[in-house]
Design a binder for these strands. Structure first.
Length: 814
RNA sequence: GCCCGAGUGGCGGAAUGGCAGACGCAGCGGACUCAAAAUCCGCCGGGGGCAACCCCGUGCGAGUUCGACUCUCGCCUCGGGCACCA
């Protein structure tokens, strides 16, 4: 379809005019120090790619902006900041690809983003724009690192980490998807490197518990579920199996199956493997461990694969049975989880069963269901507990499984063989990156003094502009090649020392940006406590679920730490979080190779931002996303054109308070109610539909009553802000529509006085009767029985039962 | 395998226990026009009937209920997250 010809409504002129006027008037800049009803409206800041903002960004930002504008109209002072997540691998990789320096590329991209965001008509407070690459910002990112360091929450350790051979850096576990780099898709390798970690695992319990505390967090269920999955708490026991090399500690969630433990398995990296491997097995063990280490982590972690393993030659004692059981090594046991060793209970664990079958290890049943003696051999592992009881378990036999867990843990503790324990899947957050484009970690290594944190007065540690910023395979940051930068005097003793040359993870930049927005103009502290107290926690945060376990988890952790230090009055930074859906194009995912990528700028110049915004919000439920089709834009555009025409008519109309069509009054009040409720629920598509219905009703009776038209504009304003401002002005206003109060409705006028009640016969609607609202059963029944259609279906029979729901329906059961 | 969503006309979707298909797109018919576009009016789930109307219909199968797109149980399909996690 081609665009409408010369209408009266010219989006380009209207939009430019209002964008300029908002900037002049400071319409979108609340008083951060005095706002009486502050509302912090946050959206996930973009990383400034060279391609510019994608339609997905526009969808996300528009939805958040609509909500912010709605809150503004409801009388809140809304702070809606925007910024740029401009450090990090994505920016750096792109710079490498096109042969530019990121320090040159990023400002260009930011300028383009700023232009796009302005064109979109977001209610942004541009005075508080920020970029994480600004030394005035990352000074405080480094300061944040120091706060964690001083609190003992940052530590350095040599550990097996995820190494991306293409991006040539380590990755956090959260950045590894199916064993591949989330950025470039390259299969991740294991490397042993010295890295800085944050002790996020110390907070696992609270991070988990707060998810279930509605006073602290009101989050999309999918996001909360993803975090629960990621942290994953396991309740069980740690049990010690004595061996010649000392006790082997094992973690299990099923202490009830202890008597069925017929072997132990250690991870190949387990520190006791050398001591336990007897001379005849050493060669095989050496080979096995080498083979495992060289294999990438993907195939190691993918289940359902043939089990492999090597016997150490040693045995350990099962403290429950008193039997000596063989100790094996296999890569199906992971060093990074639990204790790196497991008790093999083949009868009641599928993996142990497969391993036992392959290596002909004994399988002893210790659980049996109802009516089963437990004597017959099994063909596959029985993992159920519900209704099962213990067998072959000494004094614990015949106990129900659930009870046995408690009893055996108590016994272990009494006898000193182990204890009840809780483990988490969550790992500490590795924040070191062997890359260039990030904030240098503010640490100095001195031969005399050891690890010395950079004094706060010396911050920021500026990232030097170097030409050879490309990473290499060495596992050492590009900054390490620049001794003129890295060699510094020790801040403590003045002796020769060198800087840490790794930079920190981009997710540290974004873990606290919402704090900085409030105080971008301050350079003597990270954030102003009075503003924090006034504006935080964030009232509404809208973003994509791709950050459910990255940004959203890290931000929570950082806030908890700062809370503990008395710097923040809240523990959870984002009181309400909603995940928006994703946009597809013509039923398919957008991708460059398919050539179906929507470039928002083209649509804005062709249709106008207001039409584009309204269409994006109309194409599907906001929290589910939807299908972008070019033809679809015509609907919202026609809608705006018709409203424009209605404003024309209202403009000419001088009579106010004239007699109103009764049906319109009802529809008008219903619409106000529906739109208000829909906006609060982020049900933007139905909010727009309701407004279209009101418009259609107005046109049908040729009504252009000013009072109604003005309220229609207010309801439309969150979606089409420039358009609404222009029409508002045409109807005589001299101040912004966003400073007007949100329409109120009269509940009594949301329902008709005369109602049409459906009459069902045996649950099927057969007719309708007109009755006054609130009519009683006898009246409606009498009216229904007089109805010829009902009469026909009743066929002379008396109703056996009558169901009447007042003002809703009447059902006659014959 | 576990967790979170979703499945409704040609299409996007609405209705969360009470008239299924609001709103919009596309399509069809008409008005206006020399013509086209735009605009306006009408039709628009399937089947039957001259018609008033009737029958069928919300992924599949059971159930609860006077009444189920909606609730319960058991499946199937799609999207997303987690996954040899002990």
């Amino acid at each position: 379809m081609s665009e409408p010809t010369e209408g009266h409504y010219r989006p380009d002129a209207v939009e430019a005019k209002w964008q300029a006027r908002w900037a002049e008037r400071g319409t979108n800049a609340p008083d951060l120090d005095r706002a009486p009803k502050p509302f912090y409206n946050l959206m996930m800041f973009p990383y400034p790619s060279a391609e510019g903002l994608h339609v997905g960004n526009f969808f996300a930002f528009t939805g958040a902006d609509v909500y912010g504008r709605f809150k503004r109209l409801q009388g809140h002072q809304v702070f809606e900041p925007i910024g740029y997540d401009a450090f990090g691998i994505h920016s750096e990789n792109f710079a490498i690809k096109i042969g530019t320096h990121p320090a040159e590329l990023i400002p260009r991209n930011i300028a383009n983003f700023r232009r796009q965001l302005t064109n979109l008509g977001g209610m942004f407070d541009w005075r508080h724009e920020l970029a994480t690459t600004d030394p005035g910002y990352y000074k405080w990112t480094q300061w944040l690192f120091l706060q964690l360091y001083h609190a003992g929450l940052a530590y350095k350790k040599k550990a097996a980490v995820n190494w991306c051979p293409k991006d040539k850096t380590v990755l956090a576990n959260e950045q590894v998807i199916d064993g591949a780099c989330e950025r470039c898709g390259t299969q991740v390798e294991q490397r042993l490197l010295e890295q800085w970690f944050f002790r996020i695992t110390d907070y696992a319990e609270r991070l988990l518990a707060n998810l279930d505390d509605p006073a602290k967090m009101d989050w999309s269920s999918s996001t909360a579920a993803a975090q629960r999955n990621w942290i994953r708490r396991s309740e069980g026991a740690e049990i010690e199996f004595p061996s010649d090399a000392g006790p082997i500690r094992v973690f299990t969630t099923r202490p009830d199956t202890l008597f069925g433990g017929t072997f132990l398995v250690l991870a190949p990296e387990h520190p006791l493997v050398d001591a336990l491997t007897l001379p005849p097995q050493r060669l095989a063990m050496e080979e096995y461990r080498k083979a495992v280490a060289s294999r990438d982590l993907v195939s190691r972690k993918v289940g359902e694969k043939e089990k492999t393993g090597v016997f150490t030659g040693s045995t350990a004692l099962n403290p429950a049975t008193g039997l000596r059981i063989p100790v094996w090594v296999s890569d199906y046991v992971l060093m990074e989880y639990g204790t790196g060793a497991i008790g093999g209970v083949p009868a009641h664990d599928e993996r142990d069963f497969a391993f036992a079958e392959k290596y002909r290890l004994p399988i002893v049943r210790v659980l049996a269901g109802p009516g089963d003696t437990g004597a017959t051999p099994i063909r596959e592992a029985e993992v159920e507990t519900e209704g099962y009881r213990l067998v072959n378990s000494g004094a614990f036999s015949e106990l129900p499984a659930a009870e046995a867990i408690r009893a055996i843990v108590a016994w272990l503790e009494r006898e000193g063989h182990g204890r009840g324990e809780i483990r988490y899947r969550l790992h500490d957050w590795c924040i070191s990156r062997q890359r260039y484009w990030g904030p240098p970690i503010p640490i100095i290594y001195c031969d005399a003094c050891g690890v010395v944190p950079v004094p706060e007065a010396d911050l920021p540690v500026l990232l030097p502009i170097i030409e050879d910023f490309r990473p290499d395979d060495s596992g050492i940051s590009p900054l390490a090649r620049h001794e003129e930068w890295s060699m510094v005097p020790c801040p403590t003793c003045g002796g020769p020392a060198r800087r840490e040359t790794d930079v920190s993870d981009t997710f540290l930049d974004s873990a606290w940006y919402y704090l900085r927005y409030l105080s971008t103009e301050l350079d003597d502290r990270a954030f102003d406590p009075a503003r924090v107290a006034r504006w935080l926690p964030v009232a509404s945060y809208i973003g994509g679920n791709e950050h459910a376990v990255l940004h959203l988890l890290y931000s929570r952790f950082i806030a908890m730490v700062l809370h503990e230090q008395g710097r923040l009055h809240f523990e959870e930074p984002f009181r309400k979080f909603r995940a928006h859906g994703t946009i597809v194009k013509d039923g398919a995912k957008m991708s460059k190779s398919k050539g179906n990528v929507v470039v928002p700028d083209q649509y804005i110049s062709r249709w106008g931002a207001d039409t584009f915004r309204t269409y994006l919000m109309f194409l599907g439920p906001y929290e589910e996303g939807g299908d972008f089709r070019d033809e679809g834009l015509a609907g919202p555009r026609r809608f705006l054109d018709k409203v424009w025409e209605l404003v024309d008519q209202a403009e000419r109309r001088t009579l106010v308070g004239s007699e109103l069509h009764q049906g319109i009054v009802i529809k008008w009040n219903q619409t106000k109610k529906r739109v208000t409720e829909a906006l609060e629920a982020l049900s933007y598509n139905t909010a727009i539909a309701a407004q279209m219905e009101l418009l259609n009703a107005m046109r049908a009776v040729n009504c252009s009553e000013r009072r109604i038209v003005k309220e229609m504009l207010q309801m439309l304003a969150p979606f089409a802000p420039h358009f609404a401002e222009e029409c508002w002005e045409r109807l005589g206003a001299t101040t912004s529509i966003f400073d007007s109060p949100w329409p109120v409705w009269d509940e009594a006028l949301t329902v008709e006085q005369t109602m049409e009640i459906p009459v069902q016969v045996n649950g099927k609607t057969r007719s309708r009767v007109q009755v006054p609202r609130g009519a009683g059963e006898s009246m409606v029944l009498a009216a229904a029985l007089r109805d010829p259609v009902v009469e026909k279906f009743a066929n002379g029979k008396e109703p056996v039962k009558v169901i009447y729901v007042q003002d809703r329906l009447l059902n006659l059961v014959l």
